[in-house]
Structures are given as C-alpha cells and as structure tokens.
Design a binder for these strands. Structure first.
Lengths: 328, 328
DNA sequence: GACACGTCCGGGAACGTTCGCAAGGATCCA
DNA sequence: TGGATCCTTGCGAACGTTCCCGGACGTGTC
C-alpha cells in the first residue's frame, strides 16, 4: 500500500542502501544521484517508515511526557513548548496524563515507554525504587521529584515567593494567609514560611486541602477571622476561588484584601481583577527538561553517569489583585 | 538489551510463534502452556516491541489527533477524554497542535501520519483536495469541516444558541451584541442571526476580530453605544475580556449588561461573576470522534464507503453573568 | 606504472514480531 | 480400527529499514 524504499530505489536506478543513505547520510552519496533519489522520492510520495526505522535502529524518534493532569491549565503551555522544541530537533512528543493515580500511572508508563526514546516524568507517585528501575531501562528525567542518580528538573518557587512577600510587605501587609492545597508535605509551604520569617511577617497556613476552586471559596471565608489582609494561594485556580468568594462577601480586592496566586496560568491574566501571581515560565521548563532529556539520551550512548539537576526559577508578576493594606 | 520474544520462548520451552499467540490470540493456545508463557514473560519483564509489531502487522496501536492550539482551554478536556477512551481500547494517542498555520500543519501531519492508524483532524486549514488525498491514504475524521466523502464530526451550536436567545428574551433583553472573532465565514454567526430573527430580537454583530481576551475588552466599550443590554461572545475567553472591561467601566454584570460565552471552558466556571455559557461537552466529542475514527479504521478493512457525519449538540449553562434587563 | 587511499555504491544480514502453512497428536464417529 | 476432523504447536517467510562489509573506480604519490 504505502510506497517503500525499494520502489524509490528502482525508480531512481540505485540500490536501497543508497536511497537509505540519501536520507540519513546525505554527504555519503554523490550530489547528482542524491538529487535523482530525492526527486524520485518526492514524485512517489515516499517517506521512511518509522516502525521499520526504529525496529532496525533502536530509536523511535519520539519523546514521552507524563504529566499529572492535562486539563490543569498549568500544563498545556508546557506541552506546547516541548512539542515545538522537540519538533525542531526532529522528534515527536507523546504526552499522557496519569491522573495522579498510581496504578494508572504504571499502566500509562508501560504503554508509553516502549514507544519512546526517553521520558519526562512529572511529579510521579511512583516509589523511588521503581523510578530507579525505570531509569535503568531508559533515559528518564523527573520533574519535581528528587531521586539520587536520576536527572531532575526542579521548580524553585523561592525567588518568586520572596518577591511576593516583599511585595506584600512594601504594601504594608503584616499578616497573611497561605492556602496549602498540595498532597505532598515538602510542598510550597516551606519556602513560604522561610520567607515570612526572614521578613518578620506573620503567616497562617490553612489546609492542606485539594487544589480546587472550591478550596479557595472556602478558605476565603476564613481570612478575616485570622485578621489577615493578604492571601497566597496554592495556585491560580485556588486564588480565583478566593477572588470569587471575596466578591460575594462584598470584600474588595485589592482594597480590603490582596490575593496572590501561583503558576501564572491563563486564568491569572483574564480574571477580574487580574491576578498577581508567581510565574513559572513554561518555555523555560520545556527548554530545560527537553534539553536534559536529549542529553540523557545522548549520554546513554557513551557512559551515562553524572546525574544532573537543573533548576527553574520563578518571579512575581504583579497585577491588579494586590495593593496597599487597608489602614484601619 | 530489551528482552525479546525469543528469550521468553526458550525460557518457557516453546516456539516464538506460540509465545506470540499467547499474547495476541490466547484462545489458540492451551491454557497450561499459556500460563507457563505468561509466567516466564512476567519474570523476564517481557512486553512486545511495538515497532516490530507495527512493522509486521501494519498497525501502530496509536491514534493521532491534530488540534489548532493545545493551549486553548477548550481542547485539553477533549484530549484527556479521548486519551482515556482510547486507552480503554488498547490505543495510545498522539496529539499535536498545528497553530492554525498551514505549512506547520502539513509538516505536523507528515510527522504524525506515519505513526498512527488514523487521524482526527480539527478544523484543518488544508484544502479540500489535500484532505481528500489524505483520506485516501489513511482513516481520517475531520472536525468542524465538511468535505463530501470524509467522516465528519460537526459541532452544532444552534441548540445552545437558541436556548441562549430564549434565555435573554425571557429576561427582557431586546437588543444584543454578538462579538464575532472567528476566521472563517460560516462561523457561529449564522445560527445566531437565525435565532434572533426567529425570536424577533435585534442583534448587532461586531468584528470579525481575533479570538482573544483583548477583543472582549475592546468590544465591551462599544456595547453601550449600540444600546444593547446583552453580549454573546465568540468564546469564553472573549467573554471574560468583556467582563473585565465592564468591571473597569463600572458597569454591573449582570445588573446592567448580561454576558454569555461559548464553550464552557474552565474559565467560565471560575470567573467572577461566573459565566453563563453555551456548553459543548468534551466527553461527547471524544466519544463520537473516537468511535467514528475507530469505525473508519475498521471499515477500511472491509469496504470503507458510507461516509458518516455525526453531530455534537450544545446547551446553555446559566450562571451568574446573565440576569434581568435593566428597566430604564 | 604500481601502489595506497578515498569516494561512491551494492549485497545482504539483522532488528522483533505476526501469520500462513503444515505436521503431529488426540478425539470422535462409523 | 480406520479415516476424518479439530486442537495445538513449530517452521519460516515477510514487514521496511539501517549498516557493515566489500568491490569498483578514480586520484594522487613516489
């Protein structure tokens, strides 16, 4: 059905080897013959069969990426950036989401891993032992997990959080609520407490809850009771819940209460008021995670030690949801 | 490096054929031997090589999906639903976005098409001729395009729009603005005009603009000038732009102006006020497009005529951005 | 003019799997 | 008991490509 290398070979009067070379090692074939081959291939509509190629060559030309939830607006821009980047390098990207469910994740990895040359695994629920096993089988980059010996991309919120706390302090806020909605314990809370201590502000942590809009709605009702004038939410979605509830309660944002999100998703830029948030650049994640994976794949051929850790920074994006603390 | 079928064969004392059958046609091998094979496979950690499988068998076990923009919040839930559905059928899904750019789209299709058994193509910029050519080469389902002879999923907004218009009318609105922000001419405008005429309401169409937040911001300033008390926006994002600007202008929503979006993305449910919008169910799209593609793939084996068109409905989801028209 | 060397090309094995074909044994019915 | 049939299994070709190896030819050097 599909046109094969053999037909191109006979159409251009050369052997299959030469056609293969014309595509994979163009400098090893005489320009004239190469042109003839390329012409014939174009006319016949030939393009190499990736299955055959990867069977013979052992590499698939695809990168895998497993993320917790593709419907979470934080991830699509990252996926998009990684795809664009990978395509420029001749790779395609296979993304799958694990729903943060362990057995699902295992099944997903099994389905994906055989089809890719390497895998970016985001905040896996897998045990350290399993991750190490997996890393032994294929090039692996983990994001937001730390396992000695596995290449890692770490998202550091500390810079953004420091900026956020300074921002609030400059506006005269003295007491703050942090809405914790993450499952793991290390989490975003640690940097926050440190920053607050460093700047001698007072912080109340609520939660942990689920990272949902309703969490923000609920937590918003508790802010006044704690005498706080500012809120830092676990992410933009939760922050929007806060905004929503403040509006219902007739509390002005930022007049009475300032609100800060985390992630700088689309949500932050289109909310009313627009949301001050801590930005994590999706392009940077894509670049660093993608490059790291590519390096790991390449290094695999040589020796493959020297596990590397790269860090992604963050910064505050001030918008309209923060302002001077109310003078009482 | 990886464990092959041959090793499983020798480990369990049978031929490779039998191992192959134990996986692909379990009822053709005696239960006892099958169990022995499965045990050996599990112990060795064997799983079939998809590349070899698809080279020999001609099918890849993956479905392709090309969408305009994965960062558009409309798409991720659809992708998620299709992935979940496909996985249940033993398929993996390869998604790529085309950025609505024709040459990119062509390159993307070329990269994807060889790796999949079939393709769902969303609102392609390709010419009808090219689409037909593509459909001749592989199972194809197009969404929001109509080409005779190609299986098609059509999203119909008419039901939702009718409900929206009735909703506005019941609230006493008499004059409306429609913000057109689509590139193609057929677009969402047609159903809107029809519905308004049918209910004898008056409509002003603005645009066409780009489907962006700023479009809503800009268009919002024109609403009052047209004496309208309600706005229907091209999608939720544009509607949020309207909401944002109304708030800046001190115009109350829904007190002074009612706003309706389209798509029912995450944005609609988390905005303040929450957005009345016309919902298109991502699960339904996934189910119908997925099934249609699977049918097309299967039908391909038999005869493959009888091009089918399936329609996706829509419905109004009333939230807090619509209310009674102001009595002046 | 012989030899070494480099460039360009063809032959053929190999990648891991599926599947058509056929052989062997068991079962069944007459 | 003999033959027909079914179940179970093995053999080997084939899928389309890459890549090692070697051959042919041309160029340069002493």
């Amino acid at each position: 059905m599909a046109v094969t290398i053999r037909e191109v070979a006979s159409a251009s009067g050369v052997s299959v080897s030469t056609v293969s070379r014309a595509f994979t090692a163009p400098d090893q074939v005489q320009p004239r013959t190469r042109q003839r081959i390329l012409d014939a291939a174009a006319k016949l509509g030939y393009s190499p069969n990736p299955a055959a190629r990867s069977l013979r060559g052992g590499s698939t030309g695809t990168l895998g990426m497993i993320i917790p939830d593709i419907a979470n607006p934080f991830f699509p821009p990252i996926v998009k950036a990684i795809q664009a980047r990978a395509r420029r390098q001749g790779y395609t990207v296979l993304v799958a989401d694990s729903d943060e469910h362990e057995t699902d994740e295992l099944a997903t990895i099994a389905a994906v891993s055989k089809r890719v040359d390497g895998l970016i695994l985001w905040a896996s629920t897998l045990s350290e032992a399993r991750l190490l096993e997996l890393a032994g089988q294929m090039p692996l980059v983990i994001v937001n997990r730390h396992v000695p010996g596995i290449a890692e991309v770490r998202i550091s919120l500390s810079a953004g959080i420091t900026q956020a706390v300074e921002h609030l302090r400059a506006y005269g806020h003295r007491r703050c609520v942090f809405i914790n909605a993450s499952r793991d314990e290390l989490s975003r809370g640690k940097s926050i407490h440190e920053s607050f201590e460093a700047l001698d502000l007072s912080i109340v942590e609520l939660g942990p809850y689920e990272p949902r809009f309703e969490t923000g709605v609920h937590a918003a009702t508790l802010v006044a009771a704690h005498g706080a004038t500012a809120v830092i939410a676990h992410n933009d979605l939760v922050a929007l819940g806060v905004l929503h509830q403040m509006s219902s309660l007739g509390v002005s944002v930022p007049g009475d209460v300032s609100v800060i999100g985390i992630d700088d998703t689309l949500l932050a830029s289109v909310s009313t008021p627009s949301l001050t948030t801590i930005r994590i650049d999706p392009e940077e994640i894509a670049a660093k995670a993608g490059d790291l994976l590519l390096e790991t794949i390449a290094g695999r051929a040589n020796s493959g030690d020297g596990t590397s850790v790269v860090e992604i920074g963050s910064r505050l994006v001030p918008r309209a949801s923060t302002g001077p603390a109310p003078t009482r």
